[in-house]
Design a protein around this nucleic acid. Structure first.
Lengths: 337, 337
DNA sequence: CGAAGCTTGTAAAACGTTTTACATCGATCC
DNA sequence: GGATCGATGTAAAACGTTTTACAAGCTTCG
């Protein structure tokens, strides 16, 4: 690993290091002649900027940290990818923080802004990863943070998400309109705001339709295929049999459909299944999955843009960004005869 | 954002900054009394180390960069997750480099070691992201790098992968043993060594079984469900009809199975399908997917460990690590009557 | 022609640590 | 009792940039 610095360029070009720095970073600050000279010298000795040193001086690391419960969740890829794209275009790199749902890991990753390894945080969690009471709420003491998909409850950070309440309503209404009334629900982690709101949406839609929901048909689970599998098993042990299952994520729905097949139920003939997210695989399933699609690319782009603006000192015009979801009717739901 | 440094601790504890640094990082270097005093002072003023400054001084960034073609590939999650785990345990963070297959992006991410933002590279690509000829091959000029799942062809970097040739053989042999002889293949990107070797394995196994393979039944594709879908469409346009399809990834297999259903083929009754990877969803598909499983957690753990050892100056005992794959027979393949 | 103003270059400080080399002090040893 | 040694503390240099403040030279203008 070579160790050429601007000092070496300076020596080779016969100028001071200040001039080198100016030539490299502030092209207008030096004459065209010296700029060329410096650039040539830099090229010849194979100079590469030490970003660590530059960051120390400018106190801007060029990194943002994305805190997510699980990289292995298909729903988040699209978001991460979009974040990465925006970040890259604006000269930032993405530090990945997979927390496996641990609050401690969330805090560790968030601390990277305090230790200057990151300039901002994109947080996909319902918990704040630091004590906001300690620092009192003055925004200049807090790191730039955008809350995505979930909501911490603090109205000082921008949020980007779909309207989960409405998503819950739309999914439920779709089932109701198909004639279903015995509807089961498999939620994600009930600590998350997304699950809370979707459940609320479910209850609202049932009430609006004049239907009673059956508390025993609501299984509180986690956002994973495995959970969908076991939760469905639990559901099928009951006396009351649902005619439709509302899964709070497509991964849950995958597990659910698998379990249904194991118990020899046909989808959608015996039981309809609807998911949320529209992960890329949803349409490839057999039967293809009816779901409430989230605009993942949009979500990622929006929250990255807001965060980077925030880092640049530009406050967001709007605090809460609600993006449009969309009901995608495929083959896994059908009208009850 | 507060700006407390060791200078402030020093002032408060009534010692020099050198003592503070020693108390914090080299516990044995100072007396127990002063150490406690310093720690207390640090705690009181809410000190947080500026890792940027420390990194500059020690020239160790504490980051590793993982260069992958696509975050959204289910096969890589497990690997990334394992890498993250090991890295975290050893005090490193993971910078995610999603290249979308672009050689330029690979180079950009790899350059982070030269700009001191990362200490090492885990590379999932068949291309080297820098000119190795320029620096001539002296290993001290090259950044620590571990090649995972693919192979650049340079025998100076450790590699971690399964035996793709054998994987291709095993998958093919499974089909042959079930009585199939008209076997189609949908490959991944043929630039990748994984696809090249699996194809070679396919041909070897066919030859070993005394079978001719049909060149028209080999579709050169990409590692994605979408490609699996279109490639299968292409296959089904031909006069010759395969009785089995060997997909070089489970994602390809998903698309393939979808396309088969669209064309009213039953799996496995009409056509058997086998994949590679054993992504978490493989068993949830309908029918559940027969596949050659990769030990993703093992792969991730191994390559992260080797890389971090390499960074610590410990050369690997072995250059090429071959991990065990495993044939998982499920419902998507069946014996030809 | 002298003042004012622009252009271009530079010396030096600064960012916040770690680490080296040295100083001091008391204990130990012969 | 002087030399030696270990323990503990510190001053200062170093990491490689960016940026500030200033200097020198040149142009412009009344």
């Amino acid at each position: 690993m070579s160790k050429v610095g601007i000092k070496d360029i300076a020596a080779r070009a016969g100028v001071s290091i200040a001039t080198v720095s100016h030539a490299l970073r502030k092209p207008g600050r030096v004459s065209e002649a010296t700029r060329k000279k410096v650039l040539a010298a830099a090229d010849e000795i194979g100079y590469m900027r030490n970003n660590l040193a530059a960051s120390l001086r400018t106190s801007r690391s060029g990194n943002i940290v994305v805190i997510i419960p699980d990289v292995a969740d298909n729903h988040v890829y699209g978001i991460i990818k979009a974040i990465e794209k925006v970040a890259h275009r604006r000269g930032y790199s993405v530090l990945l923080g997979d927390t496996q749902g641990s609050a401690e890991r969330e805090r560790e990753f968030a601390a990277m802004t305090r230790s200057r390894q990151a300039d901002g945080i994109i947080l996909m969690s319902h918990r704040l990863p630091f004590d906001v009471t300690k620092n009192d709420l003055s925004p200049d003491k807090l790191p730039p943070l955008v809350n995505v998909c979930e909501f911490t409850g603090y109205d000082i950070f921008p949020t980007v998400a779909i309207d989960d309440l409405q998503a819950g309503i739309d999914a439920t209404r779709h089932l109701v309109e198909l004639g279903h009334s015995e509807i089961a629900v498999i939620t994600g982690d009930m600590e998350t705001t997304s699950s809370q709101k979707r459940l609320q949406g479910f209850k609202t839609a049932m009430a609006d339709a004049g239907l009673q929901y059956n508390e025993r048909l609501i299984v509180r689970g986690k956002y994973s295929a495995r959970c969908g599998e076991t939760a469905t098993g639990t559901l099928l042990m009951q006396k009351e049999r649902p005619t439709a299952i509302f899964c709070f994520s497509d991964e849950i729905a995958m597990g659910c459909m698998y379990a249904l097949r194991q118990h020899n139920f046909e989808i959608p003939n015996d039981i309809s299944v609807i998911g949320v997210d529209n992960i890329p695989f949803a349409r490839y399933l057999a039967p293809s999955l009816t779901t409430v699609g989230q605009p993942t690319a949009d979500i990622g782009t929006t929250c990255a843009t807001i965060l980077l603006d925030l880092i640049d000192g530009k406050p967001p015009e709007m605090l809460h960004h609600v993006l449009q979801h969309e009901l995608l009717v495929r083959q896994s739901t059908r009208r009850l005869q």
